[in-house]
Design a protein around this nucleic acid. Structure first.
Length: 949
RNA sequence: GGGCCUGUAGCUCAGACGGCUAGAGCACACGCCUGAUAAGCGUGGGGUCGGCAGUUCGAUUCUGCCCAGGCCCA
């Protein structure tokens, strides 16, 4: 007789070339290369289309082509990729054409820094060419980073908002708004540096502490005040405002009140002063009359009472309208807010509601124009003291001090900036119109149209609709012009004879045609005469002395028309896409600009569904920032653990809320990843000699416990598919992981080891287990492919597939629940049985603790169940398999009339007597009964006889 | 300050017309195994369901306020 160890060679122990160590850092790039060489993305689309399923139209929101990608990009792109792969694997061909937003200030800013401001100003065309190169560089960089994540798409043919055709289309879409009369030229306050003589973007200002004058000013009542508030009829008095910019007082057109707040009129020195009740005390203290802080009011009324009444301007011969606005706050001042629509954003918005003009008698150098004769020609900041003096002379000044606060300064000149109303182009949201595409529809405004359109959109999560609706409700007209160079120029001309500024759809279409051939650079490079339609003249005076407009379009307009540029124009995929998927900041950004662009021209939303995800935050829920030290470099994660870990992270977290990222979370995910990988590996290891075409057993030939595994997996498949359809990827991961851990690793795979290792290689017992494992592995791989793309593809390449199965998992379909048996009776029996099993496992643990046994195969178990219960029925059903199901050597089952405990069963564990089979390690009475193998059980002896030497 | 949203064990997630001792996986502790081995199996501990009020016979689940955090505005 030989050494017992030799029997190991007679077992079918797990064997696979799929390595335990993932080493994704090296392996993922190899897999990427095979995808590229095999054109797997293209073939995936073809395979999906083969089933005749309806295409799913998905449209990528373009990231900004500047800088390396960060976690937010990763989250977003991987979510999109999961959608694309999942849909294709459902048989719905889903193309993914990534895009980039290429125009705009940040790039222009960066290039300007590089070449210097003077050079940029002197040669806009040269600046644009450098911007184009800069954007292209980052497109290439980000593309490589996105591809490394395993994201499928037409990376060799992305859409860029700076290509000729895109620029032309952007302008044409703008022309459609012009054509229907929705575009007007108006004025709007923008941040302005009077030293640089230029408009600034928010990103170009720095806030620094500065001391400003702080003054309280009286605006005397007109008779209208007494008409609204009877107590004040015929009474001498004034509304009191507070400001830190005295120079804006000549431009005051109104005073804003909080409509709901209570205001009081308090007598001081024979005069009624109106301030907010909440600020009465602070106000009188500030002007040195604290004794009036709690003085009784002559009158008390909500702000709305004074709506559209008027006061007199303190030193100019005109009225100041009393209005209400929600921007009024009660933290400082008097609650009565000085409103100069030409010099403040809030002022402008609230003023527009009352039809007040953006009055701004200040030129580009920051000097008053002749409209303000007292100060004409002087820089506004230098006039503060004189304004104060003038107020004092007229008895309109109530208090004067210095006030230190954060004030915006120009990033370049370091001078304080002002808001200044400048000419801009607007798309009116309250102008009624009829969309081009549905001329028969009744006219309505862009606002109304957009509000109606989102009713027909599915929002995931549902509150997205409320959020957009809230913004639509209060949004002002869309200011679409910018005083910049890097963008799509607004094709407009100024008549040097009469000063009229003109743009028409005809002009725009003509220019757009030139852009198609030469790009928007043509506007800068060519003479105006070359750009105009033949015979074009000033529509106002007929003059031909025209100048080019130097404004460009808001980049949100560029990306807002991407649905038209990409889906309609390029792919012919119709005017409405199935899904937009972006971060929740895009409710104000791209979701809204796209909505307005589409509703304004086509009368409908550009999307059928909008999915939003939250932002990436750290382990405690705070935003990530490099200065806070809570930033984890994504490249380090990829280097250490592979892109699949980031894909798993993306999928495993519930993106509807903010998504947390921390080292602990990554560590947990690494554990989960290992579990998944090891389980795949084990399953691959037990089926290397299983040919699904010839070795698979029919369901009724399988052992019931194996059949149950398929029933159970069918439930998992159903749940996972439902989760995919609802875009609940964290439920996908959770469902699969729980199944893998609980049902497979700890049960099915554990209990079938004996049959898989020791059973006759082609015997029914072994083939039954292999059939279950093979089918579950096959299904699991396909289910997980959209998430763990690299790992699954790797596993798939080590997996023995049926003949004719595709070589890439992405050419396969997701499994369907109907691929697996449904057997409610078997499922219920197993559920009852698992209750009994828990009792046995606990008893085994106690026996282990008491040193009665070590390995469970050394145990003999006696279980008692109550007669007539589900537990008895289940135990009887599995009676012959009980040792296997408990992984013990012997089980005695007894049914008793009364169990006496509140449990489905009781169990007693004893150390087993007898001999242990040297091959399968079971203690069996049959050991030694076969004379040819005196150290083996009967089963193993039989098996050994059938094995070739 | 406003709009929208979030807050259940160390981590990721379930849950509930308001009603039994609030669940799972991981992590942790202890133990077993050494024929999934930089693996595998078992058992166990752990939560005043962000806080405070209110409605109710009863609230983690409904309402209000507060605190913490996020996005977008201001």
């Amino acid at each position: 007789m030989s050494d017992p160890k030799d029997y190991k060679a007679t077992l079918r122990l797990p064997q696979t070339s799929f390595p335990m160590k993932a080493n994704l850092r090296e392996r993922e790039p190899e897999i990427l290369a095979t995808w590229q060489q095999g054109r797997i993305y293209d073939r995936m689309l073809t395979a999906a289309a083969a089933g005749g399923g309806a295409p799913f139209v998905f449209h990528d929101g373009p990231p900004y082509a500047n800088g390396h990608i960060h976690h937010g990009h990763i989250l977003n792109k991987v979510l999109k990729d999961i959608v694309v792969k999942m849909r294709n694997m459902q048989g719905r061909p889903t193309a993914y054409r990534p895009g980039w937003d290429c125009h705009g200030l940040p790039i222009e800013h960066a290039v300007e820094k590089e070449i210097g401001r003077d050079a940029a100003r002197a040669d806009p065309s040269g600046l644009r060419k450098k911007c184009r190169v800069f954007a292209r560089k980052w497109v290439d960089s980000q593309r490589a980073e996105f591809e490394r994540l395993g994201v499928f798409g037409t990376w060799d043919d992305p859409y860029l908002t700076m290509t000729h055709d895109y620029e032309a289309l952007t302008l044409r879409e703008f022309g459609r708004f012009v054509g229907r009369g929705a575009v007007y030229q108006g004025r709007k306050p923008v941040l302005w540096c009077h030293v640089c003589e230029t408009a600034l973007a928010d990103a170009e200002v720095e806030y620094k502490d500065a001391a400003s004058p702080s003054i309280y000013v009286k605006f005397p009542f007109t008779a209208s005040v007494g008409e609204r508030v009877p107590e004040l009829a015929g009474c001498k008095g004034a509304v009191v405002i507070w400001t830190t910019t005295p120079w804006t007082l000549p431009s005051n057109l109104a005073i804003s009140f909080d409509p709901d707040a209570i205001y009081v009129a308090v007598e001081m020195d024979g005069e009624a002063l109106v301030v907010a009740a909440a600020l009465q005390e602070a106000f009188f203290a500030a002007i040195g009359r604290p004794e009036l802080g709690e003085a009784p009011a002559i009158a008390s009324f909500p702000g709305r009472t004074l709506d559209r009444a008027a006061c007199r301007h303190p030193f100019i011969d005109r009225d100041s309208l009393l209005i209400v606005g929600e921007h009024v706050t009660m933290d400082t001042g008097t609650g009565c807010v000085h409103t100069a629509p030409g010099f403040g954003e809030d002022d402008f918005i609230v003023g527009a509601r009352y039809g007040l003009e953006a009055y701004a008698p200040v030129n580009a150098q920051g000097r008053f124009t002749s409209e303000v004769p007292e100060f004409a020609g002087r820089v506004v900041f230098d006039c503060d003291d004189d304004v104060v003096a003038m107020l004092k002379d007229r008895g309109m000044l109530l208090g004067h001090s210095r006030f230190s606060h954060a004030y915006p300064h120009c990033w370049r000149s370091k001078n304080p900036v002002i808001f200044r109303a400048t000419p801009q182009w607007f798309i009116g949201v309250d102008t009624p119109f009829t969309p081009d595409t549905t001329p028969e529809a009744p006219a309505r405004t862009l606002r109304q149209g957009a509000q109606a359109a989102i009713e027909d959109v599915q929002f995931i999560p549902a509150w997205g609709r409320d959020r957009i609706a809230g913004m639509l409700k209060s949004r002002p007209d869309w200011c679409v012009s910018r005083q910049r160079h890097w963008g799509v120029p607004i094709a407009a001309v100024t008549c040097s004879d009469c000063g009229t500024v003109t743009t028409t759809q005809e002009l725009i279409d003509h220019v757009a045609t030139i852009f198609e051939a030469e790009g928007a650079d043509a506007w800068f490079d060519r003479e105006l005469a070359d750009l105009l339609p033949p015979g074009f003249a000033c529509p106002s005076c007929g003059g031909a002395n025209l100048d080019k407009s130097r404004d460009i379009l808001d980049v949100w307009f560029d990306s807002g028309v991407s649905y038209a540029a990409v889906m309609e124009a390029a792919h012919g995929l119709g005017t409405r896409t199935d899904l937009y998927l972006e971060g929740s900041d895009q409710h104000r950004g791209w979701f809204q600009s796209s909505l307005l662009a589409s509703v304004g021209t086509r009368g409908q939303a550009p999307y059928r569904a909008v999915l939003t995800h939250g932002f990436v935050v750290d382990g405690t829920g705070r935003k990530l920032s490099k200065s806070e030290g809570n930033y984890i470099d994504p490249n380090k994660i990829i280097d250490a653990n592979g892109a699949d870990l980031l894909r798993l992270w993306t999928a495993a977290e519930d993106y509807r809320d903010d998504i947390r990222l921390s080292q602990e979370i990554l560590n947990r995910l690494v554990e989960a990843y290992r579990k998944i990988r090891n389980t795949f590996r084990f399953m691959l290891g037990v089926v290397p000699d299983f040919d699904p075409d010839v070795d698979a057993l029919a369901l009724d030939a399988m052992l019931p416990q194996d059949r149950w595994a398929l029933v159970r997996f069918g439930e998992v498949v159903g749940r996972v598919r439902k989760a995919y359809d609802a875009y609940e990827f964290h439920a996908v991961v959770r469902t699969i992981l729980d199944f893998l851990v609980t049902d497979l690793s700890a049960f099915t795979l554990d209990i079938t080891k004996d049959r898989l290792y020791c059973g006759r290689p082609d015997g029914v017992e072994r083939r039954s287990a292999q059939t279950a494992v093979w089918r579950i592995l096959d299904g699991c791989l396909r289910l997980m492919a959209p998430v763990l793309s690299f790992t699954v593809e790797e596993a798939w390449s080590h997996f023995r597939r049926p003949s004719g199965a595709p070589d890439s998992v992405f050419l396969a379909r997701l499994p369907e629940a109907s691929d697996y048996p449904v057997d409610a009776t078997l499922a219920a029996t197993m559920t009852a049985f698992l209750g009994v099993r828990d009792v046995v496992l606990k008893a085994l643990e106690e026996a282990r603790a008491a040193k009665v046994i070590g390995h469970p195969l050394a145990a003999s178990v006696t279980i008692r169940v109550q007669a007539g219960t589900e537990a008895e029925q289940a135990a009887r059903f599995f009676e012959s398999a009980l040792p296997e199901l408990f992984v013990v050597s012997r089980v005695r089952l007894e049914a008793v009339a009364a169990l006496g405990v509140d449990a489905p069963a009781t169990a007693e564990v004893a150390a087993i007597e007898g001999a242990r089979c040297a091959r399968c390690w079971n203690y069996a009475e049959s050991v030694g009964t076969d004379p040819r193998h005196d150290d083996l059980c009967a089963r193993c002896a039989d098996v050994l006889e059938t094995l070739p030497e």
